[in-house]
């Protein structure tokens, strides 16, 4: 199977993106920003369609749209209390815009058969070109390195933003910068698993990791490991069973891992195998 070019490209592009998505996803879950991540993934759909309608490179539309909306979300959601509603209404509007661009595109001479829409929505990891895969790998690694670099201050700002601000950390800038990272990751992951499923690489492995351990760095590592495992197993599954779309297979594996984490958490809650004080809490993220 590894002798096939498209499999090698899929793994080359997918592994760094899964690595970065797992790490970024842990903070997304910890900060309670899964909904924001979801919105950014849908935004990438609108961006790609806008670029398609205008006839420019899809990737330009992807990155421009996600970065702009990430900044907009950071601006709108200044207070925690109005967060999810502000995000929700923005999301609805962005999807409506997507429908509009789809209309425009279908009417132009280039459009018609809906392939672009389907590819953007559900991705096509087996259809990547060599250049796309290498770019995806570079961006994935870069995102992961940036994430590790800001992990400590971001963790501080996430767990107690007041204390972090008192210590002189730029809490607002960190939050906005983090959302931009999520946006770039969403734009890149859209090309691999698609706009609608990219949340599966961000939220699902991280949700499982956060259920299993309260230690931040361990959870971050676990989350990346789960994401990469989902990607690899998913690719193998899709290769072995040709009627299984790769995006669905990847998310399917991630969902199974998540379901197992519930089982594992309830087992350790019932029969703790370590002293009471050291027992991992099942609710690490209540600060979000």
């Amino acid at each position: 199977m590894l002798s096939q070019d498209f499999i090698r490209l899929a793994l080359l592009a997918g592994t760094p993106i899964a690595l970065a998505s797992g790490a970024i996803g842990y903070f997304v879950v910890l900060r309670g920003q899964v909904f924001a991540g979801d919105t950014l993934s849908h935004v990438s759909f609108t961006g790609a369609l806008a670029a398609a309608a205008a006839g420019v490179d899809l990737r330009f539309g992807l990155f421009a749209a996600t970065v702009v909306v990430a900044l907009l979300l950071a601006l709108l959601g200044d207070r925690a209390a109005s967060d999810d509603v502000a995000i929700g209404t923005t999301l609805a509007w962005v999807l409506g815009l997507g429908a509009f661009f789809l209309d425009l595109f279908n009417r132009s001479s280039r459009g018609g058969n809906g392939v672009i829409a389907a590819r953007t929505l559900f991705g096509s990891i087996f259809g990547l070109s060599g250049g796309q895969a290498r770019l995806a790998a570079v961006i994935g690694v870069a995102l992961f390195v940036i994430m590790l670099a800001i992990a400590r201050p971001l963790l501080c700002a996430t767990i107690d933003s007041k204390v972090a601000a008192a210590q002189g950390l730029p809490v607002t800038a960190l939050g906005a910068g983090f959302l931009v990272l999520v946006g770039v990751d969403a734009a890149e992951a859209t090309q691999v698993v698609g706009a609608l499923l990219m949340l599966g690489l961000i939220a699902v492995p991280a949700g499982a990791a956060a259920r299993l351990t309260a230690s931040p760095y361990l959870a971050l590592t676990l989350s990346s490991v789960f994401a990469i495992a989902s990607l690899w197993l998913g690719v193998v599954l899709a290769y072995v069973i040709p009627s299984f779309p790769p995006s669905s297979a990847i998310i399917g594996v991630a969902a199974v891992i998540y379901a197992l984490s519930f089982a594992a958490a309830s087992v350790t809650a019932r029969w703790p195998c370590w002293p009471r004080g050291a027992r991992p809490s099942t609710s690490p993220g209540s600060a979000g």
């Binding site: 899964v34 699902v204 956060a210």
Partner: peptide, 10 residues
């Protein structure tokens, strides 16, 4: 809220 959003996302 944090776990809830992860569950919903999943």
């Amino acid at each position: 809220l944090a776990q809830e959003s992860a569950v919903i996302g999943a």
